[in-house]
């Protein structure tokens, strides 16, 4: 292939200085100019470091506090969540750890409760801003993006719970706590307009909706928020998978089937 490709990795995030006697090991690693192992390790908090990694600067105290809260709120979606269920299904059969997490990612990436839903809800924030009429118009007929097409069609307004009756307590608590830290911006507008928005959507606000508003409020792009949502939902999946492996597959629900087109034991019956 004669095409011209780059020779080196380009990065504005990461720089490495080699050890004098080994060009393949780093003597110092700089993240956005800060010496990670020589300076940050004992001084920065994990959340501050993540913010630096993604956004290039140190977060203010409020931003760090809001992210800390968000990371805890997302840390364990609980065993009923599809991503945790998938992780447990892998874990209970003794699949390797990375396979467990890959299962959680695949099942936690979609537009029902997953990373994709947060991304889509954030795109709605970009389109509608804090204008109630825009939102009402959007929520009455949410337009799914035309690409990429392999994502299944969205079946509900992103950020809202298609099977909910009223907004669940944990979603309300998360929104209230975030508003306390970030009193201005999208989160607060969401809290104020929540009844009108839920009325327009016909369904209650979901955790993904709060998460999308928070990341918008914190100036993250939809793609960055999608990544962080995927990442931050994994610890619970990991822990539950290990727990089920320890308990064994006999304790793990297997469910039952109602086969609607059973040809019976002979099975050779031709079908049309």
């Amino acid at each position: 292939m004669s095409d011209n490709f780059g020779e080196v990795f380009h990065s504005h995030i990461w720089e490495e200085k080699a050890e004098p006697d080994n060009p393949f090991t780093a003597a110092a690693c700089y993240c956005r100019g800060y010496d990670v192992y020589g300076d940050l390790l004992s001084k920065a908090t994990y959340i501050e470091y993540l913010y630096l990694l993604f956004k290039g600067e140190r977060p203010t105290q409020e931003v760090a506090a809001a992210l800390q809260l968000l990371a805890i709120a997302l840390a364990n979606p609980g065993p009923r969540d599809p991503s945790v269920h998938a992780a447990m299904a892998a874990g209970v059969g003794g699949s390797p750890a990375a396979s467990v997490l890959m299962a959680a990612l695949a099942s936690g990436a979609g537009s029902y409760g997953g990373g994709r839903e947060v991304l889509l809800a954030m795109q709605a924030w970009i389109d509608c801003g804090t204008n109630l009429e825009n939102w009402q118009r959007y929520l009455s007929s949410p337009q799914a993006p035309s690409r990429p097409l392999f994502w299944p069609q969205t079946e509900h307004a992103p950020g809202f719970d298609p099977h909910g009756v009223t907004c669940s307590t944990i979603v309300t608590q998360t929104l209230q706590q975030l508003c306390r830290i970030l009193p201005d911006g999208q989160l607060n507008w969401l809290a104020k307009e929540q009844p009108a928005l839920e009325k327009a959507a016909g369904i209650p606000l979901a955790m993904t909706g709060v998460v999308a508003a928070a990341f918008t409020n914190l100036d993250f792009s939809p793609a960055e928020a999608e990544m962080l949502t995927l990442l931050w939902r994994l610890p619970g999946a990991a822990a539950h998978a290990l727990e089920q492996w320890q308990r064994g597959f006999r304790q793990f629900p297997f469910f039952s089937l109602d086969l609607e087109n059973d040809p019976g034991v002979t099975g050779l019956k031709e079908k049309t």
Binding site: E7, V8, F9, H10, S11, H12, I13, W14, E15, E16, K17, A18, P23, F24, T25, A26, Y30, R32, G33, Y34, D35, D39, L40, K43, A44, G56, R58
Partner: peptide, 15 residues
């Protein structure tokens, strides 16, 4: 190698 990484972000700074 370390030098196969071309960094173009902020210069070194202290925390």
């Amino acid at each position: 190698r370390c030098d196969r990484l071309e960094y173009d972000g902020p210069a070194h700074r202290s925390w």
